[in-house]
Design a protein around this nucleic acid. Structure first.
Lengths: 149, 149
DNA sequence: TGTCGATAGTAAGCGCGCATACTATATGGA
DNA sequence: TCCATATAGTATGCGCGCTTACTATCGACA
């Protein structure tokens, strides 16, 4: 309502808290992934791509499908995948049946790196959310409620 | 643990959910603040500055103190304040007792804009978290637990 | 009084996160 | 067959969020 009640401290606003906690979490992820030379988003896309490849889906994985699965912006997905391609972690070959699309695959090196990073990231996550202990299930459910469709 | 269990879907990871939900929330804030020509961070700093000014603290508000209060990066705070200064919403005069520091104040226009925006942002927040209904208190408490010291 | 560590602020730069606008191709229907 | 619409992907640009490195000043202490 007023300045004094509304924004005196972030304690009042779940939104501000959400923002601050997420920044804190991203910092933890950044630190955990630093030894692998990966950013958080690079890791998510690489790991998601590895997983999608392993699925028995029809046709090769396109950038669009990867972006949809990882819930990332298609534009950013394009940029990040080109970075990963430049580092030899993914390939972006022309799609066999759709001249507009790319067939994206993780290279052996990329998949191996993702496998290593996944363990570290999961440990980092577990540590980050450990203060919640049993409440983490409730917390996760709340987040799922707020997630965009 | 493995690709299949660890990153098949964001449902599994509170971290990924946190990230996605925050992006979603930021989009809502962006839309709500668009009519005022403010970004989320600009709004937070402007509103926090207005609040700090109203407090009976010793000496003028410095960028450092504002950044600390809003839990924002000092470098970013500097940038954003210069943007707000260019738009006439804040002033950044030399500090009377410390030649290193700036005495930051919200202009009348800035304070008025903040007051208007606060109402809209609070409504936006209430709407965003309404799916949680009563659980919002629990959710906020969990976030506070995870907040950096 | 001089100097030395701590502090306020900024320059430059990278990687998202997203908005806008564009090209090229695919696809369904007359 | 031709065309309208939808779709895959990219160029450009802005605003964070943060890192590193730097200047200038302050405060404490000998």
């Amino acid at each position: 309502m007023s300045l004094a009640t509304g924004f005196g401290s972030a304690d009042d606003s779940p939104g501000l808290l959400l923002w601050q906690v997420t920044n804190h979490w991203q910092a933890a992820q950044r630190a955990a992934l630093k030894p692998y030379g990966l950013t958080h988003v690079q890791f998510v896309l690489l790991a998601s791509l590895s997983w999608l490849q392993a699925q028995e889906a029809p046709g090769p994985v396109t950038q669009r499908r990867l972006a949809e699965h990882a819930a990332t912006d298609p534009m950013m997905t394009s940029q990040v995948l080109r970075t990963l391609e430049a580092r030899g972690l993914v390939t972006r070959l022309p799609h066999p049946h759709d001249a507009r699309a790319r067939a994206v695959t993780a290279t052996e090196e990329g998949a191996a790196l993702a496998d290593q990073a996944i363990a570290v990231v999961e440990a980092c996550d577990a540590d980050f959310f450990s203060p919640l202990s049993e409440e983490v299930a409730l917390f996760t459910r709340a987040l799922r409620t707020l997630r965009p469709t």
